[in-house]
Structures are given as C-alpha cells and as structure tokens.
Nucleic acid binder design. Structure first.
Lengths: 365, 365
DNA sequence: TGTTAGCACTCTTTTTCTTTGAGTGCTAAT
DNA sequence: ATTAGCACTCAAAGAAAAAGAGTGCTAACA
C-alpha cells in the first residue's frame, strides 16, 4: 500500500528530523500512545487525557509516565493542547504520522467486499457508471462527501454521432465515445429533415468526426465542418452546433460531487467553506491529478489548495491500461476513520481499475 | 390568484368562526397590525413588540392601543407570545390569514420576469428540462430547497425505441417518449448482433411498443413480448430487459430535489427532519398532487404529511392541455418571504404551462 | 535511569445569583 | 375609543463562585 500524505507544516516547530532520529526519539510506547490519542480523538472529538490512555488495556504504565511521553510528543509537534488544563489533540503532523505508520488499517472482510461490490454498477461497465456508483457508495457508507474526477473524456474519441427524429422538427442527437459514454441532446430545428439530409448528416459525421478527440472538438472545428458542408449548410448547421455542445458536455462533466449534504450536516465544519470549495470545484479539484503523487494521497491543512478547515480529503487514482483514467476522493472531517475509509476507497479504485481493464481485454479478444 | 392554505389547527383556540364574524372582530386596523407583525417577523425572526409597530408610518395610534389590538389578535389565535414579556409572533392561523388575505404580493416587474425567463431552458422545450431549470432557478433565487414532481412519464407513451451499436457487443438503447423526454442505456450482450437481428428488433419495437404508455410497460409485458419473438428470443431478450429498465427509469424519475443544501445551511430548521423528509420524498411528496386543491397551495404545520417543523412549502401545479402535468414546490423556513416567492413560483409555473402547451400547438400544425 | 505517587496550579465548564431591559397588562385620565 | 403611566414579568446578559479535568513538577522508589 502506497500512501502519501501531504502537509505544508504550519505547525512544525522542529526542523525536519531524519528517520533515524525520529525512531530514536519515538520509542514503541510513545508511538502507541500517539496512536491511542489519535484513535480516541477520532471517535470522541474530545481532547484526550493521560488517564484515559492509561486505562487502555495494552498500555501498562501510569498516567504520570504517559504525561511525560505526551509532553515529549507535543515537543515533537505531533500533539497540541487546546489550553493548559485540557488533554491533547493531534496536530497535522500527528495525523500524518498516524496515517503513514501508526494506524491499524482495517483488513476488509469478505463481507465488506461483498457490500462494496453490491454498490458497483457492474452490469453497465462504462467507466463513468462504475465511478459514479462507487462515488455514491462511498458517500453513503462513510457519511462523507465524495468527489469524482473522470478524465476519460479528455482521452476518448468520438465513435459515433447519430441523429434520430422524434417528432415534428424535433431531433435527438446522440454521441458515443470510445470510453463507452453516451450523451444525448434534443434539437429543435426550423424545418423537418428529408431522409436524404439525414443520411448525408450521418455519413458526414462518420467521415469527419469518428476518431476525433473530445478535447479537440471546439467551435472552430465545427465552423470548418459547417463551411465544408456546401448545400446542406443552412439546414444542418444547428445540428452541428448541438454536436459541439454535446462534446462540451463531456468535457464539463469532469468533476462530480456526491453526498455534499453529509458535510453540511456536521457542525464541526464551516458551512461557507464547504460551499465555496464546491463552487470552485472545477478549478480546485483539477490539481487532484496533475501532481505526480502516489496512487493514494491524503490531503489536509492547506495541501494543494484544499481549503476546508478541520477536514481532510483522501484521493485515489483509477487507472486504465496503465494510464490514470480518473480519481475518486472522499472529503470528510479531519477526524475521519482513516483506518476504515482508506481500505474502502482503495478497494473500490482497485476494483474499478480491474473492471475497466478486463473489459478492454474482453473487447480486444 | 387562487391560493389555498392548509393547516390542521394545532393552535386554534377558538371554534371556527364564519367569515362574517371574523370580519366584524377584525377591523381594518387590526388587520394592518397583524400584517405588520408578520412582515416584521419574516424579516427579523424576532418577536415583534407594540412599540416597533407604532413606529411604522401608516400606523397612527399609540403603543397602548396596539397592545390592546394585539391582545385581541392573540385571543383570536393569530398571534402568540413566546413568553410574557416578549413581543408577538404569528401562529399558523396568523400565517394563513396573512397569506390568504393580508400580504401585499409583490407584482413582478419586467426585470423580474426577464430574470426568471433567463433561467428557463427555452431552447430545449421538453417538459422535463423546463421544469428542471425552473426548479434550479427557484432554489437559487429564493435560497430554498425546491421539489419537482413530473407526472409527464405517467401519461406519456413511447414514441421510439432505437438500438445503436457502439462497440464490440456494446449497444445503446434509446427511448423517446411523447413528452419529449429521452433516456439511454448501455447494454452489453453476449454476442454481436447481425444487421438482420437489429432490423428485426427495430421493427418489432416499432410495432409493439410505439404508443404504449410508460406506466404500462412492466416486466409482464416484456415477458410476453420476449415470448412472442420466436427465433430471436435468445439473442434479443437482454435488450428487451434493457427497454424495461428504461421505462422504469422514466417512472422513478418522478420527484427531484434541488437546493437541499440551502435548507441544511440554516440553523433554524432541524437537520434531521430535513434529511428524513427528503429520504422519504417519494412517499411523502406523492400526495402533493393527489389532493384536489387549487393551483397553488401553501403547506405548513402538519399539512398533508409535511413534517419539517418551522418550515413551509409552496406547491404550484403545471398543466398541459388542461391536465396536471407536474408540480413545482419551494420548501423554505416558516418565515419565508411569501409576498415575493409566491409570485415567483406562480409566474414560473404559468410560463411553463404556456410553453409546453404552445409547443404542442406547434407540433400539431 | 525510568517510573510513579502526590500535590499545587491552571483554566474551562457549570452553576448560581444579580442585574438589566424589553414588553406586557391594567388603571385611570383624556 | 384612545392613551399615558406604572407595576410586573421573565428572558437574556453579566458577574461571581464552585467544580473538575488535566497538567507539570518534585521527590520517592525500583
């Protein structure tokens, strides 16, 4: 499992120590204590005191000893006190160490896996539908918000454009991409099309758009195509405009959010910040993939423009044929049950990665 | 304007008076005072005292007089006091009277109308898209949640079913209804279809499904169709299954919610109740249309299973060819700016009603 | 040297009590 | 019928006191 945690240390009171030193300073007991503090804080949300830790079964020292260790952990920047007479809460560094090394990541039982599988929309194995269903599953099971970035549109090409008459002057445009995604759009024309016109359109689309990347298909391309249509120009131009909008739709559709209300319903996270974050999701979340991080990353603090205080974001990549095809993210409170959520998201992205690769194999047989 | 307000008087301390009596007891000044209390409470959310009312320009009596009137209004069940030494707030009956008779409904300026029009998705005049855009507009402009019930699917019939190959063993099913709505679905088959099979399917669909009501198309119908297919049964059955699911999709799509987060962000409304209400939206909101109320109704208290405390719901019907085609609802705080929101929702539903009727005319020319 | 009991100290939280002030209802005068 | 005046009520705000959780430090102990 490759996990990478980012934090621009806002609270790193010590110069970065190399691993050796840290290990010396952090003996096993201190690590267990830190883990226990984080564990407890994640559950209760209350600062954790020495007494509570001492009461744990696998800690066999007195509160006084624990106090000493905690003071040390605070010195090292892993814990902090809200005020003098309170227990400790983890700092960003504390969370980072916890996630990287300390926590006891839950191993998924077969039942867990079955549960997760049951959410996946396996019957319709387009990348889109799969990722979407995974997103919904995570939002529901973790009570968090989830974000999905599907870059498939960027890399995919048009495989088919159809026009289907559905009523007087009403036509449905249908666009299918190589990634198996479909969009349709209703167009209202000034005139009814003759059979000949429709045939021409189909042929013209097949000849000129099949294999064209979604990303390339902009207003300019369309204008050129319109200009080259000759006699058919006037009647068919609106349809081409529709084609352009469909492509636009594929591109826009890049980032979707699920379970935003789970976040809004919590009062330990600032509502305004949540709303602002999702309003700008297109710009903000864009960076989610641009960086060359590992397959799974945990962001908090002010990492990569992630700006919701008191909350964190786990992002995991989905691959197709070795290339990043999208990513799935969970946004929850800072004190998230990482030990559970990380395996969940990991399993789902792995599963999807497999599913969409399998398909491909299948297709190419 | 036909407005109907429902309240199961939980606080009606007097036996129902007939209109005559009420008018006698409620002279013009008392009515103005009641209106002023509600107006002020809607804006500030604070109990309103006699002094504040006396300060209003069109009230030319002393606080003492107003106190007497307010005491009377309380006796009549229109106002109440949170506690002895506080101002008054409206009761449900107070709101009802206010909405029915007292409030000064805003007349929409041309600018307002232009604003509202700009939200409507007029280019793609399917009932669905229109209602959807109106729903979004209202959610945004009023900062409330909106609910949409589209019964069009129930009454509409299938006008077209197409199957389009999009890759190895991958087919897109496309279904168009008489109300102009379109849905598609990806099907994965075990075999590739021959041209002949596809032609048969198209013809078979045209012969057997065109004109069939969405509501009737269930598993049974499909089974019969499969059985009657003869040789093609094995290969095409999965497609028919897909057709069935498409119809199901149209039916499910009945109730949609927009701007739920606007409600969640307020802290004067119980989060849990909001979530529960929307979880059960399918059952709860179903009644919205079943009753034979007027075109526009305002629900609060415990009307018709509306169970969010401290909030109210305005529902307005959308007609098509004289028949109820759907409805649009706004759910907001009890102290909603009814004088503004009601004209808004009224305008939008009228506009949509016109638009979808116009189209029909158009289509039938 | 690491661990621990004991204790004084700190600082939030909770509780209790007091004060303040908005708003009322009633009475008597206009 | 309206209004000024006044005593009264009660939530909200403020102040003071008590409680309690948790700490750091010291000194004793294994």
């Amino acid at each position: 499992m490759l996990i990478q945690v980012l934090t621009h240390g806002t609270d790193e009171c010590f110069p970065r120590q190399n691993a050796k030193e840290v290990i010396e300073l952090l003996d096993d007991r201190k690590r267990r204590i830190l883990a226990a503090v984080v564990d407890s804080y994640i559950v209760t949300g209350e600062p954790v005191g020495s007494k509570a830790i001492a009461a744990l079964p696998d800690i066999r020292v007195s509160p006084a000893t624990i106090r000493n260790d905690m003071a040390m952990l605070e010195q090292l920047g892993y814990l902090e006190q809200p005020h003098t007479s309170a227990g400790r809460i983890p700092t960003y560094s504390g969370y980072r160490l916890y996630i990287d090394e300390l926590m006891n990541a839950k191993t998924l039982s077969d039942e867990d896996k079955r549960l997760l599988d049951s959410y996946l929309d396996v019957d319709v194995p387009t990348a889109d539908a799969l990722i979407e269903s995974a997103s919904k599953a995570l939002a529901e099971l973790t009570n968090c918000a989830t974000v999905v970035k599907n870059v498939a549109p960027k890399f995919s090409v048009i495989t088919k454009v159809e026009v289907i008459p559905t009523g007087r002057r009403m036509y449905v445009l249908l666009m299918v991409t190589s990634s198996g995604n479909i969009k349709n759009k209703v167009c209202r024309l000034e005139f009814d099309l003759t059979n000949e016109q429709m045939e021409f359109f189909s042929k013209y689309m097949a000849e000129n758009l099949q294999g064209v990347s979604i990303d390339e298909l902009d207003e300019n391309t369309i204008e050129q195509l319109v200009a080259a249509m000759g006699t058919y120009m006037v009647t068919l131009a609106p349809l081409l405009q529709g084609v352009c909008e469909l492509a636009e739709g594929f591109r826009e559709n890049e980032i979707r959010v699920e379970g935003e209300k789970n976040l809004l319903a919590r009062q330990d996270i600032n509502t305004e910040q949540i709303v602002r974050f999702f309003e700008n999701k297109n710009e903000v979340v864009k960076n989610m993939l641009d960086d060359s991080f590992g397959d799974l990353q945990v962001l908090f603090g002010e990492d990569g423009g992630f700006i919701i205080e008191n909350s964190s974001m786990i992002v995991s990549k989905i691959k197709k044929d070795g290339r990043t095809a999208g990513s799935l993210g969970v946004i929850g409170p800072m004190r998230l049950d990482y030990a559970k959520v990380i395996p969940y998201i990991e399993y789902l992205t792995d599963r999807i990665t497999n599913l969409i690769s399998d398909n491909n194999e299948d297709d190419e047989k």
